[in-house]
Design a binder for these strands. Sequence first.
DNA 1: TCCTTGGATAGATATTTGTCTAAGCAGCTT
DNA 2: AAGCTGCTTAGACAAATATCTATCCAAGGA
Lengths: 120, 120
Amino acid sequence: MSKQLPLVAMDVCCAPLAREPLTQDQAVELSALFKALADPVRLRLLSLIASHAGGEACVCDLTDAFDLTGPTISHHLKVLRESGLITGDRRGTWIYYRVHPEVLARLSAVLTTTGEAVTA
Amino acid sequence: MSKQLPLVAMDVCCAPLAREPLTQDQAVELSALFKALADPVRLRLLSLIASHAGGEACVCDLTDAFDLTGPTISHHLKVLRESGLITGDRRGTWIYYRVHPEVLARLSAVLTTTGEAVTA
DNA sequence: TCCTTGGATAGATATTTGTCTAAGCAGCTT
DNA sequence: AAGCTGCTTAGACAAATATCTATCCAAGGA
């Protein structure tokens, strides 16, 4: 299966919130993902990567969009990476990031209120 | 329209993350909602409320599910309330909370990766 | 009227987190 | 090799946050 996702991303998770109560463990896993989304910079990074032509973007593309130092961007990318929402691989000089759409889709499904989930 | 939603919940927001880059303002609004979801206790509270028979639950039902003091639960409910995800109204002795499904649905739509959004 | 119970508010405190500067490593180019 | 550029790691610090105790308000029942 998908190569090397951090544990947290593998078996997240569950029926929609509104279908049945989350267990403690499910809640902890999900909250880790939502925590990664709970910052404007990280949301914009994710959106920039996800919407970028070819489905990937290098850090250099991303840094320019913010009034923040390189290390700060790098920190946010690390949070997104460790949460399992994105992966980066180096190709020559640059490092390219892309999103894991399955993880996004599962979160979307968890928040669904209208009957059934996304098939991912 | 809907009576008294906090500003943040009203016009959130936007095309799916992956369709086009979020603006700064959109990212700030969305991150406020995800921040409200970024805690295991609040996720479980939300899930307990949303999945409860009749679509609503009183605080007394909720408190028992946790090893936390009343004020702590009250604090988390306040965060959810102020983010626009739930509302509570008092009826006699008890206060009943219910979720705002539209807000949940919009978040779900923002995370969608498969073409189109939920109609909300 | 007074006490009890459901729930919120206030204030204190330890932890987490977002940002920075400084330093490091990896791959080019000359 | 030697230097440059892209990006990450390390460490420091201010701001935000999750939890607690103590207190307070609102509604009901004796």
